[in-house]
């Protein structure tokens, strides 16, 4: 066996410094701080802290408001993941079948990808505005008085719609490339074996897309849990009041509005564990699910 050798054994570490320092500075250090802070009761003005053990965790978990937020987060995540996946799959299947001007069609579908979450939130804020929003007017035609920021359900609806809209392009790109990597000859073999296109899709194409779909499911759950912060913040104008918010928003709100650093740290540690579990599931499943030879 030939060993790759560097003249100075420090060189590989040196090359890793940029990456390692970013991980250390922006992930490990804050994460460590959060874990430490979750066991302390911090003085709101930073004059001192007291070790309280698991108290922050117990307080958080037994708080009805926290449980409500967790419940809403779960529903929000399921709704966003389900609709953004299914709509983008439908679009990808249709775009895959387009023969003429396919690239411009695809570019149009991917466009939304370039919009930052807070901007997406602003766009929605205008579209769904209680007085000026055209979509609010449209909803009124069907007898639905849409009151963004006032009615909890309406706010949740706009939040979900915006989050779904924003996530569709990402899913679309992955589904489209997944569809294109299904060998053409397998599609053709299926065309000879099965007359119904719908049935062919569910029995052959869809199972072959499963690895992509599963990967996207994890990505979408992570997205709905964390990356929707910008959208939520803009839509509720930084004033949650009685509006529904997600766990991540609550972490921010409790820490920087409520000045409860300890409790908020405990909440973020819980979220960290959640991400950790999701990542493990993802790696385990993806290795097992890949069908291609």
């Amino acid at each position: 066996m030939k060993r790759v050798q560097f003249r100075h054994s420090l060189l590989p570490y040196f090359l890793l410094i940029p990456q390692l320092s970013i991980i250390g500075l922006f992930f490990l250090w804050p994460a460590g701080e959060a874990i430490r802070a979750s066991f302390y009761l911090e003085d709101p003005f930073g004059f001192g802290s007291t070790f309280v053990g698991m108290d922050n965790y117990i307080d958080t978990m037994s708080n009805a408001e926290y449980l409500n937020t967790a419940w809403f987060t779960l529903i929000f995540t399921v709704v966003v993941a389900f609709f953004s996946l299914s709509i983008s799959l439908l679009l990808a299947v249709k775009a895959d079948a387009v023969l003429h001007a396919r690239s411009s069609y695809r570019t149009l579908l991917m466009w939304v990808y370039a919009i930052a979450p807070p901007v997406a939130g602003l766009v929605s804020l205008m579209l769904f505005d209680q007085h000026l929003g055209p979509i609010t007017d449209l909803a009124a035609l069907f007898g639905w008085e849409l009151r963004l920021g006032v009615n909890g359900f309406d706010t949740a609806f706009v939040m979900s719609t915006t989050a779904i809209w924003k996530q569709i392009p990402v899913n679309f790109i992955f589904f489209l490339s997944g569809l294109q990597s299904v060998p053409k000859s397998i599609q053709e073999a299926a065309a000879i074996d099965c007359k119904s296109g719908t049935r062919r899709f569910w029995s052959v194409t869809f199972p072959l897309l499963a690895p992509t779909g599963f990967f996207l499911l994890i990505i979408n759950i992570t997205y709905a849990l964390f990356d929707t912060f910008g959208i939520i913040d803009v839509l509720i104008k930084s004033e949650p009041g009685n509006n529904p918010i997600t766990l991540v928003y609550k972490v921010y709100n409790d820490a920087f509005r409520g000045n409860d650093l300890g409790g908020s740290s405990a909440q973020s540690v819980v979220l960290m564990i959640l991400v950790f579990i999701l990542t493990i599931i993802q790696f385990r499943m993806i290795e097992r699910k890949v069908h291609y030879n």
Binding site: I186, I192, K195, L208, A210
Partner: peptide, 20 residues
């Protein structure tokens, strides 16, 4: 006529078996 209705069977170069 649709391929499935032609009552033919085809063997492909890369076999085109359903991997799942």
């Amino acid at each position: 006529v649709e391929p499935a209705d032609r009552d033919i069977a085809m063997v492909f170069q890369n076999y085109a078996l359903y991997p799942h």
